[in-house]
């Protein structure tokens, strides 16, 4: 039996980013760009889910089962607990990249388990945009 790779792994995410009410299955994580919070009021954390597809270049068939991986702030995470137990909100790639940059440059963002305060340090505009 030929096993073809999923043609558009980002299909669900593309729908969900536009329509947040897109049906979501608990045990079926989808590739895409997301954000979540570690605690209530905490900074937004960028999360990326990626579908790994090992494809035979000659036949175009999958050489192994497709598997979902996830990356959060440069670290590989188990995608299932993230998908099932945290509220992942689909976001646009530009927002994802901006969040990654914010975590790199803004000390308030890097403290993921502390509520973010906007009134202690003023938020200044970043000239470089990622949108």
């Amino acid at each position: 039996m030929m096993r073809r790779p999923t043609p558009n792994p980002l299909e669900w995410w593309q729908a969900a980013v536009v329509d947040p009410t897109t049906p979501r299955h608990e045990e079926e994580p989808h590739a895409g760009f997301y954000t979540r919070r570690a605690i209530k009021g905490g900074p937004l954390i960028p999360v990326r889910l990626h579908l790994v597809q090992e494809v035979d270049p000659e036949t175009g068939e999958l050489m192994a089962d497709e598997r979902i991986t996830s990356e959060e702030l440069g670290q590989t995470r188990d995608p299932m607990p993230l998908w099932m137990w945290t509220h992942l909100r689909p976001i646009m790639p530009g927002e994802y990249r901006a969040l990654v940059e914010a975590h790199r440059t803004d000390p308030r963002m890097s403290a993921t388990h502390a509520a973010i305060t906007t009134h202690e340090t003023p938020t200044r505009p970043r000239r470089k945009t990622y949108a």
Partner: peptide, 8 residues
């Protein structure tokens, strides 16, 4: 950009 709007 939307990013700057968010920062604002």
């Amino acid at each position: 950009s939307e990013e700057q709007a968010g920062q604002l």
